[in-house]
Computed example of a mutant assay.
Amino acid sequence: MPDHEEKLVGEFPFVPKQERAQQKRNALIESGYALFNTKGYEQTTAKEIAAHAGVATGTFYRYFSDKRQLLMSLLEDKLEKFLPPEPSWMTNDPETVLASLLEAHYHRRNELGLQRVLPELMTKDSELAEVLGVARRKIHDRMLSGLKQASESGLTWPDIDLDTVTWAIMVLVENGLERQNQSGKKVDCQELARVICRMVFPPEVLEHLQKSELENKE
């Protein structure tokens, strides 16, 4: 998403080339990352980020126009990693494959952090909301295309609206970490994959696919 990233990040006041200056800039980014994760975006100030990094507030503004620009530089190249993975419906064991994809997705999300920052910003930053919206629609369209292929092969429930199912899957996956934070229990990716696959496939189809997978392994 290069065009959108340029719009989100904007032009930096100064891009360091010397190693010492790069270290100061990196320290500010790491400081912002830590404070955004612990305090949230609104409660974090540029002055606090600078102090946490051990530099003067003026140094912060040498490298970043404001705290938003620092945050967007953190998010650069990472936005799509916050969004649901694209399932593979045409496999012999879609439930197991999906569970594996979900495990990897939530692991990436936990590594990236910033869980509390994005929801906080979505209602206040229209540019970020637009970029995430475009990314979500792309994933929706790819997921829907895969479901249509499965439907044309006679694998899905014949009477479901695939567009609605696609959005429902995205909501279930996106809310997984929020439920985890509220309950304190790790997302059960196998159970979530089971629920999603029951939405898509009739029981006899899933059973047939799983039997085919076992036969292929023997």
Rank of each mutant, 00 (worst) to 15 (best):
H4E: 15
V9C: 06
E11I: 13
F12K: 05
F12E: 13
V15A: 14
K17C: 08
K17Y: 11
Q18L: 13
N26R: 15
L28W: 02
L28D: 00
G32M: 01
L35I: 07
L35A: 06
L35M: 07
F36Q: 08
T38P: 01
Q43H: 13
E48W: 02
A50S: 05
A51G: 02
A56F: 06
T57W: 09
F60N: 06
F60Q: 03
Y61P: 10
R68A: 12
R68N: 10
L71Q: 00
M72L: 05
E76H: 14
E80W: 12
L83V: 02
P84C: 13
E86W: 02
W89K: 01
M90D: 15
M90R: 14
T91A: 09
P94S: 12
E95V: 06
E95F: 02
T96Y: 10
L98V: 01
A99M: 01
A99L: 05
S100F: 12
L101H: 14
L101M: 12
L101C: 05
A104L: 11
R109D: 09
R109P: 04
N110G: 14
E111P: 09
G113M: 09
R116D: 15
V117E: 10
L118W: 10
P119N: 10
E120C: 09
M122G: 11
D125K: 05
D125V: 08
A129E: 13
A129V: 07
E130G: 07
A135Q: 13
A135N: 08
R137D: 15
I139Y: 00
H140E: 06
H140R: 07
L144I: 00
L147T: 01
L147V: 06
K148F: 01
S151R: 05
S153V: 00
G154M: 04
T156Q: 04
D159T: 06
D159N: 14
D161H: 07
T164G: 02
V165R: 06
W167A: 02
W167R: 09
A168P: 01
A168G: 07
M170V: 00
M170H: 10
L172E: 04
E174S: 09
G176K: 03
G176I: 01
L177R: 11
Q180C: 08
Q180I: 04
K185G: 02
K185C: 07
K186Y: 12
K186D: 15
L192S: 10
A193E: 07
R194D: 14
V195G: 03
I196S: 07
C197H: 04
R198Y: 09
V200A: 04
F201I: 06
V205A: 12
L209K: 03
L209C: 05
L209R: 04
Q210N: 11
S212P: 02
N216P: 01
K217S: 12
E218G: 12
